[in-house]
Amino acid sequence: MPSTTETSTAVRDQGGAASAAPPGPPPSRARRPSRWWAWGFLAPVTIYLAAFYAYPLYRNVELSLREYTVRSFVQGGAPFAGLDNYRTVLTDPAFGPTLTHTVVFTAASLVFQFTIGMALALFFHQHFPLSRTLRALILVPWLLPLIVSASTWSWLLNSDSGLVNAALGVVGIDPVNWLTSPGWSLTSVIIANVWIGIPFNLVVLYSGLQAIPTEMYEASALDGATGWQRFWGITFPLLRPVSLITLLLGLIYTLKVFDIIWIMTKGGPTGSSATLATWSYRLGFGNLLPEFGPGAAIGNLLIVLALIAGLVYIRIERRQQLR
């Protein structure tokens, strides 16, 4: 969008100036008299953001700063506890392992999703008969409700009757307790999550590949470059911006992952596949006696991680638009 890039940066400059002051009569009313009424169209979504994003977030912060019991949760009047809930969470013996699981889950998911997605994107970029149809079909795992994917994988990985163990048995490998042994549960949920994430990586990277001018390849073919040289010399450098965005979006999504782990293992056994998201849910909703304070505290730690990733993403994307 070469033509819109300039205007959008111009608009952004205006916005940067305007966002410093609260909405009201603009100082430059004489110059741009007709812009403020546009907020009539934006009013519904602005009110919505305040009521259904900002307010739940505020409630969540409030939950994390007070000492809630079930009674005070319903009736109000919970005493202010400062950072006690955060202290409780950070000194919990489960905190270290859970953070490690979150990092391992996220990193492993990203690496495998991205690598396999990239390989498939390169393969499908070659345009052969049926390539469009097959590429569309591969989207299926990404579109399925997560509970469907998670329960299907639960059965595939079932210790006694799962197909995976049956297949391993044919090769002569002893059955693995995928979901019920602490050593394998994290691997199992990573496998399922990678499967779900591959299509997204494929589609985004494929659209990045399409943006590379074919002349570049033709020129390098004249120079006698091999396929491998073409990949490292042309495709990979030119795909770097798209790859970076794919990975960052993947990071933001993966930090949020809750459904798959909760449905497959509930974070267990003995917390061996728990991440920050499932721990937070367990504290708030998974036990008979809910602990909303610590649960909300973990949620807020998670949001800080997600927002850091998000801000990096926005920065990189803006820089690319400016170029």
């Binding site: 977030l57 409630r59 939950l63 937070s280 708030g284 909703f285 649960g295 949620g299």
Partner: peptide, 14 residues
């Protein structure tokens, strides 16, 4: 970018 679990807890309280 806000994780769903955080929204859910806030919504639940409200």
């Amino acid at each position: 970018m806000i994780p769903g679990i955080i929204m859910a807890m806030g919504f639940y309280a409200i």
